[in-house]
Each structure stands twice: as structure tokens, then as C-alpha cells.
Amino acid sequence: MAPPAKARERHGQKLSNGAFALLLTLPGMALFAAIVLYPLIASITTGFFKQDLRFPGRTWAGLQNYADVLNRDFWPVLQNTLVFTVGATAIPFVIGFALALALNSGLKGSGFLRGLFLFPWVIPGVVVSFLWMWIFNANYGVLNGALMKIGIIEESVSWLGEPTTAMLAVIITKTWASFPWMMVMLLAGLQTVPRELHEAAAVDGAGAVRRFFAVTWPGVRAVAAITILLEFIWNFQHFDTIYVLTGGGPAGATETFAVAVYQDAFKGYDLGHATALGGLWMLLLLVLVGVYLKTSEREPK
């Protein structure tokens, strides 16, 4: 079969290699522009207008939407988002790492347990949220019943209705859904650490704790960093669990960026305000993505 350049010469075409390559990429570029670039530009532009979804047209507002967001909503929403993101990343990491260490140690029935622990991960997020909504229910929830039976509480607690407990309930729900993924990633990293290194360290008299910090952690550190960063980014933009369980309440105690943007746009009908908040949220996400890319490019030491 003739090379592309010779084929073009045979048919009288005089396209350069660069022009030919551009023609090949045009369909993909057009698709990217239609479904990513245009909506992004339109969204950024909307942040500079006053626009109500209930009425046609819009008026120029300049930076007023961004000023209103920074003076009113941004900082409380940022705080809630960080609390949720850190909690829903750190707790499942600890649980996932502990389970990965147990499964990697040759625990009997580890194959069955690995499959069992993956069960929460394969359930859709909305289904998980409704399941835990039933568990946390103040009137007939399993959690209140169990805690009252063993004497920890004397009366039912409205876990999702109190600002002091709602965020904890949301984090617990997200933890249950996401720890299996972190367990699988960390288990894969642990299985790349040669057992000979552990045996050599044991021969040298190193205990379990010393072997962990001298052998296990250095071998799995790169995988752990990528896993934590990915989970952090996903939690920073998480929506379904929070919206189903609390809708951002009570009194805004669980209102994160994803929920706040949805509420402003589709319940408050203020598209300009929602877009301004979303634009600031996007800038923070870009910083996180940049950190992830730098970390993933770095060679493990």
C-alpha cells in the first residue's frame, strides 16, 4: 500500500503533511468545539450579565455578579466544600489503606472479601444516597434504633436535619461509596512492592512498623498520592449524594459549590449569579487539575 504522501502526489494533490494532518483532526476539533469549547465560552460570558431564566433577554452587569458572589456566597460555600472534600477523601483513604494492607497480607478468604468490599462501589450514587437517607432517618432509621438499643443515645437524633450532624452524615455516606475504589488502587500499589524487601527487612530485625515506613510506604507512595488527588478532585465537584440527602441544608450547612450553582440557576433562576460562582469554582478546579498533572508526571523516587 502506497504511503499517504505518495498517494496524494499520484492524485495530483499538493497538501503538505501538516495540512493533511489538520484535515484528519478537523472532525475531532469540531466536536470538541461544539460540546466543550462553545458551552465553556458561553458560560463564562453569561457571568458578566444579569439573566433570569424566567424572562427573556439579559443586561450587562460587568463584574457585579462576581462581586456579589465574593461578598455573599463564595466563602461559606468554599468552607463547606473543603470540609466535605477533605473528610470524604481522608476517611475513605484510611479505611481503604487498612483494608488493602489486610488483603495484601495473605488473609484467608481475601479473594471473597475483595469482591464483597467492592459492592458499595458498584451501586449508583443516587441509590446509595436513598439507602443512607433511610439509615439516618430520625423516625425509623436503623442508626438511631441501634444507638438507642446499646444506650449511646436516649432519643432519636435528626442526623440530616441538624447543622452539626448533617455534614458528618454526608461524609459517612460518601465514604461508604468510595472507600472500595481507594482500596483497589492501594492494593494494586502494594502488590508491586517486592516481598523480598520485606523478608530482608525482617531478617535485619525490623518490626512491622519499621517495615511499613521503610519498605511499604515508599513503594506505594506514588500510587497513594495519585489516588488521593483524584478522589479530592472528584469530591470537590461532587453533587448527587449531597443533593439527595440534604439539598445543601439545613441552613446551608452542607451547601457545596455543585449544590450552590444548581440552586442559584434552577431554583433561584439567577443564571448570571450561578455562572459567576461556577466560574470561580472552575478556577479552583483548574488549580487542582494542575497539581494532579504535575504529580502524575513526576517519576516515583
Rank of each mutant, 00 (worst) to 15 (best):
P4R: 05
R8E: 10
R10K: 13
Q13R: 13
K14D: 09
P27I: 09
A30P: 08
A33N: 09
L37M: 13
L37S: 09
T46W: 01
F48V: 08
D52N: 15
A61F: 09
A61C: 12
L63A: 15
V69A: 04
P76N: 09
V77H: 01
Q79D: 01
L82I: 12
L82V: 14
T85H: 03
G96C: 11
L101Y: 09
K108P: 08
G115A: 13
F117C: 12
L118V: 09
F130P: 06
V142D: 01
A146N: 00
L147S: 03
L147A: 05
I150Y: 00
G151V: 01
G151R: 02
E154S: 15
S156V: 00
T164S: 14
V170M: 06
F179M: 06
P180D: 06
L186W: 03
G189I: 01
Q191N: 13
V203S: 09
D204F: 04
R210P: 10
T216M: 07
W217T: 08
V220Q: 06
A224G: 12
E231D: 14
I233N: 03
D240H: 04
T241W: 05
V244H: 08
G248D: 07
A253K: 01
A260V: 04
A260N: 14
Q263F: 10
H273Y: 15
A274R: 04
A276T: 08
V287W: 07
V287S: 11
G290T: 11
V291A: 15
T295A: 15
